[in-house]
Design a protein around this nucleic acid. Structure first.
Lengths: 146, 146
DNA sequence: CTGCACCTTCCCATTATGGGAAGGTCAACG
DNA sequence: CGTTGACCTTCCCATAATGGGAAGGTGCAG
């Protein structure tokens, strides 16, 4: 089958299929006489694997490893699991980081009237002064006059 | 002051300061006779603003808008707040997405023995079959024999 | 034979950041 | 004065993953 059909069948864009081939993530596809790439069910299967791994946030580099494990009959499930757990930690670390940023910003936003006047704690927070944290405003000692 | 000092004072790398200038995010810096860029307290202040906005996950494009609002005496805090709330939604959306991926993977990992044998639900999950979801395994109807 | 859909390769753009080269400036030290 | 080392300049390249689009070849249907 042509690349377009393989793309539809696997959910990977033709552009990306070519790219994955160019970086050696997937083997070079066979060619028809026309020069068109030629894919079989196994290729589509592999591309689907890659797509699902991408959907779970794995980097192409890590997918390379996963593909190796996939095709390795002597793999151990502990290798796979270790890779997965590492990835889970990274995902959750990033999720936490994003949520922390959101929380800080929400704290500033709660203090912002959101009216027609220019005064705005959000701008003030960005402007400097106390480090941005997720704590409440009463924990922001703007100055210690003592 | 030289760019190095401005960098240390603002927490923005010299490389990035030049970059921000090149894309017009911050005004072109004055030059000393030597050709060195020359920064004043106000410049450092602005760079600090940019850094803190970056720390909260704002894109440079949005920081451009924030800087505009910052310097606009006729801004309304509602404009700022709206921008912030939009950004919060995006951050939380991304955080949720990452967490969902982690949850799916954790589901697969829990089912994986992690021993010396090759059998691995994680690999099987990537390989295809039922769509990857965050549901429990008892919610994965592999087949309906009825 | 024409037209349209599809394929090929190649280059460019994105986002934010950094590495590094080649060369100019400055200050200090001997 | 001369050298050295820290600092500055600009310019190009790289990253990760994806897409846009151009220029040109292929295949099939009418």
């Amino acid at each position: 089958m042509n690349i377009g059909e393989a793309s539809r069948a696997s959910g990977v864009s033709a552009k990306m299929i070519r790219h994955y081939e160019s970086i050696g993530l997937v083997p070079r596809a066979d060619r028809q006489d026309s020069g068109y790439r030629d894919y079989g069910p196994e290729d589509v299967h592999r591309l689907g694997f890659v797509r699902r791994a991408r959907d779970l946030g794995f980097s192409l580099d890590r997918i390379r490893v996963l593909l190796g494990l996939w095709g390795d009959p002597s793999r151990t499930s502990s290798e796979v699991k270790a890779l997965a757990l590492t990835h889970i930690k990274e995902l959750e670390g990033k999720a936490r980081h994003l949520q922390e940023m959101a929380d800080v910003l929400r704290g500033l936003s709660l203090a912002c009237d959101g009216d027609e006047r220019p005064d705005c704690p959000i701008i003030a927070g960005l402007e400097g002064g106390p480090r941005l944290s997720s704590r409440h405003s009463r924990d922001w000692p703007t100055s210690h006059s003592s």
